[in-house]
Simulated scan of single mutants.
Amino acid sequence: MRVVHEPATGSGRVLATTVEVADSFLSRARGLMFRRSVPAEYALVFPFGRVATRGLHMLFVPFDIDAVWLVEGEVRAVRCLHAWLGHGRARADTVIELPAGAADDVEAGDHVRVVGSEDGG
């Protein structure tokens, strides 16, 4: 799987090639807590299936991250969340966490997609 940024203008780029999906209650609750770091090409994707206000916290996460909130693939918010104390909230059906700086050029209105899967899709 890959996470691909498709800006409103210009050409797209791959944001992550190592993609983990947090699709269970436990994996969503844990998120990136207790990890020491993540690889440069990493993304943690939280698919929720419906739009609602989604909050993130950085408790027990000792490194900064970029967070991207999506509705049907359209970027609604992008924030840099700081280690230990950062938090963010926005409406989304999917949230993606990336290493700090990975989403520097991602803006509201752009599209971000998770492409590829085990079945080759």
Rank of each mutant, 00 (worst) to 15 (best):
H5D: 07
P7A: 15
T9F: 08
S11E: 15
S11N: 15
A16P: 00
A16I: 00
T17K: 12
T17M: 04
T17V: 04
T18C: 01
V19K: 15
A22P: 01
S24Y: 00
S24P: 00
S24K: 02
S24L: 00
F25D: 11
L26D: 07
S27W: 01
R30G: 01
R30A: 02
G31D: 09
L32M: 03
L32Y: 04
L32S: 08
M33Y: 07
F34Y: 11
R35M: 00
R36W: 08
V38C: 02
Y42Q: 07
A43I: 03
L44M: 11
L44V: 06
L44R: 12
V45A: 13
R50P: 01
V51A: 12
R54C: 03
F63H: 07
I65R: 06
W69D: 12
L70C: 00
L70H: 04
V71P: 09
E74F: 09
V78E: 11
L81W: 06
L81D: 08
L81K: 10
H82K: 14
A83S: 12
L85W: 15
L85C: 09
G86D: 04
H87T: 09
G88D: 07
R89A: 05
R91N: 10
A92M: 04
D93T: 02
T94N: 08
T94S: 07
V95S: 03
I96K: 02
E97H: 06
A102W: 07
A102P: 08
D104L: 07
D104K: 10
D105K: 08
V106G: 05
G109Q: 11
V112E: 14
R113S: 12
V115P: 03
S117G: 15
G120S: 10
G120H: 12
G121M: 11
G121F: 10
